[in-house]
Design a protein around this nucleic acid. Sequence first.
DNA 1: GTCAATCCTGAAACTTGTTCTAGGTTAGCG
DNA 2: CGCTAACCTAGAACAAGTTTCAGGATTGAC
Lengths: 212, 212
Amino acid sequence: MPTPPPPSQPSSSPSLPSSPSSPSAPLTERQEARRRRILQASARLARRGGFDAVQMREVAETSNVALGTLYRYFPSKVHLLVATMQDQLQHMHETLHKRPPQETEAAARVAETLMRAFRALQREPQLADAMVRALNFADRSVSPEVDTVSRLTTAIILDAMGLEGPPTPEQLSAVRVIEHTWHSALITWLSGRASIAQVKIDIETVCRLIDE
Amino acid sequence: MPTPPPPSQPSSSPSLPSSPSSPSAPLTERQEARRRRILQASARLARRGGFDAVQMREVAETSNVALGTLYRYFPSKVHLLVATMQDQLQHMHETLHKRPPQETEAAARVAETLMRAFRALQREPQLADAMVRALNFADRSVSPEVDTVSRLTTAIILDAMGLEGPPTPEQLSAVRVIEHTWHSALITWLSGRASIAQVKIDIETVCRLIDE
DNA sequence: GTCAATCCTGAAACTTGTTCTAGGTTAGCG
DNA sequence: CGCTAACCTAGAACAAGTTTCAGGATTGAC
């Protein structure tokens, strides 16, 4: 039968959800510490050598955790890296909150915000490689986690827009398209097919969808 | 002595470029046939089970080629799948040439064109999964091949726009952003995070960048 | 404080992408 | 024809992600 769509697994969260958003298991202190060690090791290895350098055995050793335990916390390498991205995005969001962009036009504020994020990624291109490749390679089993990243990104963009009331459906569509462009532009940059300048242009172009 | 590697050979293209665009080696008839068998096997397996189902050993067996030979034709699984995508896109381009979209607005024509492509992908979601995941996972070593795919996509969109003269820089920017959105929207659909309707909206939204 | 349930560890095993090797085959060329 | 270089094959070997399992350590509930 050519109809193999995965029957959607009801997510048998055993006890350790990799996303901190779903509090289905409170995690003891030591567990929280383990989780943090793992994420730190992941980011460190990623910074050094990108996606390929994040090897599960090495992450386990570095974070003083057995391989099996690592897999209990993060069921796959992609899960791990997407969680790492969540982590970094969270930082980014806080940083942006402290120093919001000053432009007058909403479109310009969004563009500036994304360019700030882009500059941050340029400082650690290997880390960016690991996170973005994982995000784009993720299959359905990582959907919840990827969705969390997506919501975070949306929040950042909406923040930058600085709306009064709730966003209109049109605005939400624009934000979605901006996110698409953001992710895809990052990929083309990481794989060396687009220059930094080109990414800037693409971001500015898509941000035109906002006001008008 | 640990220094036996040959003096250095910049791009020793042995004889088998995986992209048919660079005619650096004319390929004999049997070679052409082998290449075609491989691509066919790849597409068949992909149709059955997506990215994961395309296993190099099985591709080799199915296409009656030794594993080493497969790797000589396509230096990695991602190369193979990106080449498969090139192949499919070529078909798509020809098909579209025969029945161009009839809308009056350029934006509408582009949107309709992409929606046609999208519907084609919906008919073989697993094949789409394999090709799109490979495209987005590709690293720098696959850049030339990914670039070929990108140029093909650009050509299809420019065709749909039906321009008189050469495109302006603004139009090219818009096309780039449309491509970004197209790729990223496909990913969100494939991973089950966006509905078909949502993809349609995103495409229509980004196409607004064209006229105006 | 004891006990059962759960978690963690260490190590081996399994899977699939990729590389390597030794020998047979093919294509052009004198 | 016969030679040589490049190509192809079969198969082993290697690398890294993932799974599994037996046993020791923690934890939470009584």
